[in-house]
Design a protein around this nucleic acid. Structure first.
Length: 389
DNA sequence: ATGTGC
């Protein structure tokens, strides 16, 4: 690549980030630790890299002979679904839309027969987590209505059925408690040592992982259906991409396992990289070309968002003097925030995240993406419940 | 992240 956005940390450790992109030292430390795991061939941090529970978030890990469920984390199948709604941008009233959206936190299967039937129509295997289907969850998960403000490549834009006159819907959620249970049960039995590929337990994890990926995708689809029903509209899915998952691939002639944790695949078509609730999102196309070096150095992966800059626990102390909760319910881009949970509205403040420009520029400088369109938030929905608000 | 932990 030979550019300033590729940082070589060690022989098999690299980070894709421009010099001006903030990367916390602790995250690099975690990246180097994972690089030393048995069988690990290469690890790469994306520009949204930040520290996680033991292992970093915003990274991809390639191992041979064994794989590590803990590197995927508990939210197996977490991802982004982008849809084009039938709502017209013209004459939009955000306050009316917020009212019509209402509360979408309760289990869908507890709503009525219509929704029970909609959930059943997905024919998911029984998991015990059926009440979570159609619900967004907490943390960084959200559903957001967006407006396309700029188009950089009209041809790709139109070819994917995008239209700047229509409101977009972005859903970020995953497998809820289901993936968490799969990881917890795995760790209880096998610890953090990973699994040899020919171990029977590897097959078992693999099957459960596939089930969680499907659960997560169906969950995003149900969330979108539910939002559309409340807004009396219909939406056409443009893309749905996981960023927490395991896959079997060949890289530099070695067949092995690619772990993605907060890393969007660069080989599954058009993707969306969202900024914080107070920042833009970008629809981009990966540019892997046919040179193996670019693809293998990035492990066929891209950033999955802006990446946290502040730990959750330091957000409220740092911001409560500066903003009231009412102020946090609007953003600098004049979007509305639905988050009736005081802790969460601080934890997810735009200030807690890196500027999305630095993430997009890093990927562009590295030659990894082609930017197609820019979207601004209209309404960011987190939760209507929670406490203390 | 979490039908969330003592």
């Amino acid at each position: 690549m030979g550019n300033s956005s590729l940082q070589i940390i060690a022989e098999n450790v690299s980070v894709i980030a421009s010099p001006k992109t903030w990367i916390e030292g602790g995250a690099i430390q975690q990246l180097q630790t994972t690089a030393k795991l048995p069988g690990m061939h290469r690890v790469v941090g994306m520009p949204d890299l930040h520290p996680g529970r033991g292992y970093p978030v915003g990274a991809a890990f390639f191992s041979v002979g064994r794989f590590y469920p803990a590197l995927i984390g508990g939210d197996i199948g977490c991802g982004m679904r982008l849809l084009k709604t039938d709502l017209s941008i013209a004459k939009l009233s955000l306050d009316k839309l917020v009212k019509r959206l209402g509360n979408i936190d309760a289990p869908l299967i507890e709503q009525n027969d219509f929704w029970r039937e909609r959930v059943r129509s997905y024919q998911l295997q029984e998991s015990g987590f059926e009440p979570s289907l159609g619900t967004i969850g907490g943390g960084n998960h959200f559903a957001e209505l967006q407006q396309i403000t700029e188009v950089f490549d009209q041809q790709i834009f139109s070819a994917h059925g995008l239209d700047r006159k229509q409101v977009m819907l972005l859903v970020h959620s995953g497998s809820r408690g289901f993936g968490g249970q799969i990881l917890r049960q795995h760790i209880e039995q096998y610890g953090h040592h990973g699994l040899a590929e020919d171990d029977a337990a590897a097959t078992s994890y693999w099957q459960q992982h596939q089930q969680a990926l499907h659960f997560a995708l169906c969950n995003r689809s149900l969330i979108a259906e539910r939002i559309c029903a409340n807004l009396a509209t219909h939406a056409e899915p443009i893309l749905d991409i996981h960023h927490n998952f395991l896959s079997e691939v060949s890289i530099d002639g070695a067949r092995g396992f690619l772990h993605r944790k907060g890393a969007t695949p660069a080989d599954e078509g058009l993707i969306v990289i969202p900024g914080s609730r107070g920042d833009y999102s970008f629809v981009v196309q990966a540019r892997l070309g046919n040179q193996g070096e670019l693809a293998s150095h990035s492990l066929f992966s891209l950033a999955h968002g802006a990446g946290r800059k502040w730990m959750r626990s330091e957000c409220e102390p740092r911001l409560k003097q500066r903003y009231t909760v009412a102020q946090l319910s609007r953003t600098a881009l004049d979007s509305r925030v639905v988050c009736h949970d005081k802790g969460l509205i601080f934890e997810e403040a735009p200030e807690a995240y890196k500027p999305i420009d630095s993430v997009i520029e890093s990927l562009q400088d590295a030659g990894l993406i082609h930017v197609v369109a820019k979207l601004k938030p209209l309404i960011s929905y987190k939760t209507s419940g929670g406490c203390c608000l």
